[in-house]
Design a protein around this nucleic acid. Structure first.
Lengths: 214, 214
DNA sequence: TCCGGACTGGACGAAGTGTCCAGGACCTGA
DNA sequence: TCAGGTCCTGGACACTTCGTCCAGTCCGGA
């Protein structure tokens, strides 16, 4: 475990045993993080999988997805580490005796070994099956223009005359279509929309914070 | 083992040790059958999964699929038992000292437990509702694992034992699938392949200059 | 035991990404 | 016509990701 020794937080003392237990149980492939939700900082961390330590900013957007929920538990949802590892994560809001949120617990489980094991077992002596031939959308540029074009048609006015809301709507659609997971997509979209790169980023930011006003 | 004791066939004495070894190795989920190809009868059987015994007709069409082949080994192919169990089967033509076919060996492996285990592992802590919706290609990470997994299956060896050529082939396939147009794809692929980022780039470069030696 | 090829982590410059800001275009009401 | 908005823009910037390179390590074969 790594702790900020200078400030022995009572919350850490309170929850440390559970965290430690979970960390031990799930072995080297699970990281347990205790967050200070208010300050967006790491309170303590067990089996860290990245370089984060107590006191660091929380990062990783572990607290982003806490949309209202009846129970204080979220997930499991998928996260992707920079080095490519796939994580399954669950989060829980921890409340003090007064019922007020006091910390957030996150458990991040590295799925890679499981995935590998599953693939291994599934492949063991398996019949040489036809490959799951699966192509991506080859020309995503085409797709962008298609979407923009379709939108323009429904609004009945050319790209240059699209208003702010219109552009937001197109961008939302493009985003839903996953266009922005593709490399170099933003400049292409900007051009297709007849807007600048800056504007696209600005609109994108606005979209994000409309759907998740924090 | 069940043998037709009344006719101690020399072929059985000859092949029995191998058969027994295989039967022991693959435990209770594999059946080993020695056929008299000419007479279409069972010569001997280890760990029988059905009621067949030595002397019974071969049934099951185990000898049907022996289309001409350079090597005398066939499969693995899939068979289905009456009770629904999925089998992976391999057959081999066994030849005597004179080079003439003398018997046919079949190993039938019950895949059900493996399939179950694979499903279990794959589902362990799996995200219930992964990331956002997407029309384009929502979980390309999944796709990467599928492609790699499928490939592993055709080669019949786990990821860590793939040779250089194998890896090149997987990468070629991933590339054809357009995986590398996606942001942050390389680290993910590297992890899935159990290789380093450096290696993936190196192999990718080699692929490129094989197809375009300039 | 040594050798050579393949893989690795680390380092690095190049490219791409996202944010910020000081203009400037445009609208709108006075 | 002007003042005060809003929105967009290009440019500058810090930061991340990409792709390359290299010295060191691992490993199988002579």
């Amino acid at each position: 475990m790594e702790l900020d020794e200078s400030t022995p937080d009572p919350r850490v003392r309170l929850w440390s045993p559970v965290c430690q237990a979970v960390a031990l149980l799930l072995g080297p492939y699970a990281e347990v993080v205790l967050h200070d939700a208010g300050r967006d900082r790491v309170l303590a961390i067990w089996n860290p999988m990245t370089r984060r330590a107590a006191g660091d900013p929380s990062l990783l957007g572990e607290l982003d997805r806490l949309e209202p929920s009846a129970h204080d538990v979220y997930g499991p949802y998928e996260k992707l580490l920079a080095d490519g590892r796939r994580l399954s994560s669950v989060s829980a809001v921890l409340r003090g005796p007064d019922g007020e949120p006091s910390a957030v617990l996150c458990v991040n489980l590295d799925r890679t070994p499981l995935d590998r094991a599953a693939a291994l077992l599934a492949g063991f002596a398996a019949p040489t099956a036809p490959r799951p031939e699966a192509l991506f959308e080859q020309d995503w540029t085409e797709r962008v223009h298609q979407i923009v074009g379709g939108f323009v048609r429904t609004r009945g006015r050319p790209v240059e005359r699209l208003g702010r809301e219109d552009r937001l709507a197109v961008l939302a659609e493009l985003d839903r279509a996953g266009v922005f997971t593709v490399r170099r997509a933003v400049p292409v979209v900007a051009t297709a929309l007849g807007a600048s790169r800056s504007t696209v980023y600005a609109l994108l930011a606005e979209l994000k914070d409309r759907s998740d006003p924090r």
